[in-house]
Design a protein around this nucleic acid. Structure first.
Lengths: 337, 337
DNA sequence: GGCTAGCACTCTCACCCTGAGAGTGCTAAT
DNA sequence: ATTAGCACTCTCAGGGTGAGAGTGCTAGCC
């Protein structure tokens, strides 16, 4: 249990440190905010806060720095979220509407816009439903005996694969084949299809249905993940030295980003979750924080996450993530409903 | 015109510098390679080479460093390409075959494999033809009055867009509409379609055909560009300091990569082009080199490029780029023919 | 009992200096 | 044409130093 004064002091330390990235001294606290006490008193209080684990000391004669526990308390109890100003919200919404390309383009744009707003890296995943159903299958002839299978799922995902065709076929034949295939797999989920696949008599159709299952199940996590704002992240003082920057880049490599989000428990759309430093089950993320939100609806859910150093402007970041997630949910719904 | 001795000296300077990243001294040259002369003689020769612009001096008492002109001469005249060893070629080919996902996955994999092989960043673009024809159009119903248009082009590109449908429709209606639309646009290029679009009587069809044109023309350069090997690049000593690393990351940002390749004149598949430092028309690339190759066939052509500091192992890089480009071309053809 | 002035102590950091080392360029001799 | 020798330049790592920034503690004050 923190006394009222210690609480407010902790808040000031966090605010100050988040802003300046410099350890906060007792003197600075007194000077910058008109506390009615002397630096010595503040020092005593800070010492107590340190005993209780809310702040630390890089070295003897340095100021104080919040610990993960301190940030946690701050986020849970002290922080007052800083909502977006009207024009900021307007700008973001405007940028969102402007994009008129494919879903992928739009997601990347959303990530970039949020990244710019919070000055950190942002990861966005494509929305997908836990059990997508096949909405449509098409076989398109590319060459004489090569076709392209295009599968459209009801969460909007479009997946493709190049197939060799045993025995040349006309586009008309392929068309008929598509129809037959669609009749078997249309409106059904991957697992449902798989259950029947073996029972199919027609060998050709069975093979094709198998491919449909593959495509429907293939999450392609890393391909469906959009990372933006890497430069913004790397500009943070914690990555000033080349070594650390290289580390950061490695950690956010495309293949890794998916894994990074896996560690986060899925939540319902609307929720926003904050994972601070050592709270992250992944060891290598121990000096990073993530603000994760889900967007979408019951049919299809995706993830938006801000990734950055634990010294993060939580007050600003959390409402912005929430705002963007909500906006994405709405637009997605609007575009579909 | 360089004398034979100066030529060989230049070659040694380049080799040495490429390997160590340290300015090379007259003494080191004599010691490491049994030249029959003294360092002083070498110094005289190096001074001449410097006069003629092939090498430079970071500062008075430093060794020599090749200039862009020096690298150019090296690539043009001195270098003997180092072909892949049999097992390296086998490994790469094996990795290429292993990938069994979509084209996108495969391209990203190819980029990553090459990047690992040359220890630099690699950019790969999707193959596309100069005038792709529409092979297939499908309208798929997602919600009551929202459809997804999926366009397949004959270079294998699959593009999609979410469309609001004026007036709810049944999937069956959409199907018929797709057929009609396909009748108009199938087998034709974007420009050919556009020529007729205005003449169409049916307003709905006209709008849809317009969207098809959009999709067919939309190159989505940055989306169709795959960058891999960023960490490998950043590990190079020229990016040791955080500042320069940040610069490098910014320069390779997704939005920029496409522009980066634009500056390179297109060539026929099979050609490999080397752009060294200030030869690049883009100012900000003046201390970078690129080894660019085209892959594909007459129908669809893509680009593979290695991007790194001018201090690049050209002898190794060029044949590896060529090898990978050829391999990609073959596989692409194999998968289609 | 809480607050605070004062002070000793610690640690960092920027700075300067220095000497070693690595190169070059030039000259004079071979 | 080559080379030994040497003066000269520049960098770089190391060490020392002083200033500055903090803390923690203690003793006295309200």
């Amino acid at each position: 249990m923190l006394t009222a004064r210690r609480e407010s002091l902790l808040g000031l330390v966090v605010d100050e440190y988040v802003e300046t990235a410099l350890p906060v001294s007792s003197r600075a606290l007194v000077a910058r905010h008109g506390l009615g006490v002397s630096p010595a008193t503040v020092r005593n209080e800070l010492a107590k806060l340190e005993d209780e684990g809310y702040i630390t000391h890089p070295h003897t004669s340095a100021g104080r720095v919040p610990s993960d526990q301190g940030y946690r308390y701050y986020v849970e109890v002290l922080m007052t979220e800083q909502p977006l100003e009207a024009d900021e919200a307007r700008t973001i919404a405007h940028q969102f509407h402007q994009a008129e390309g494919s879903l992928d383009d739009w997601l990347a744009l959303a990530a970039a816009v949020l990244a710019a707003s919070v000055a950190n890296a942002v990861v966005v995943t494509r929305p997908h439903s836990p059990l997508p159903r096949v909405r449509n299958v098409q076989l398109v002839q590319l060459r004489r005996d090569v076709a392209l299978m295009v599968v459209v799922l009801d969460d909007g995902a479009v997946r493709e694969r190049v197939l060799p065709l045993p025995g040349a076929a006309e586009q008309a034949d392929l068309h008929a084949l598509s129809e037959r295939l669609a009749g078997h797999v249309g409106g059904r989920s991957a697992s449902a299809i798989r259950r029947d696949v073996e029972a199919m008599e027609d060998g050709e159709l069975r093979a094709l249905a198998g491919t449909v299952v593959d495509l429907a199940e293939e999450h392609r996590t890393w391909q469906e993940t959009f990372l933006e704002g890497l430069p913004a992240l790397l500009q943070q003082p914690e990555f000033a030295r080349g070594e650390q920057m290289l580390d950061a880049v490695r950690r956010l490599e495309s293949y890794e980003v998916g894994r990074l989000l896996e560690a986060t428990e899925p939540e319902a759309p609307g929720d926003t979750r904050v994972v601070i430093g050592s709270e992250n089950p992944q060891r290598e993320m121990h000096d990073w924080s993530m603000v994760v939100a889900r967007y979408g609806d019951d049919d299809a859910v995706g993830t938006v996450a801000v990734v950055g150093p634990t010294r993060m402007h939580y007050e600003r970041t959390i409402p912005r993530v929430r705002f963007v997630a909500a906006l994405m949910g709405n637009l997605l719904h609007e575009a579909r409903a």
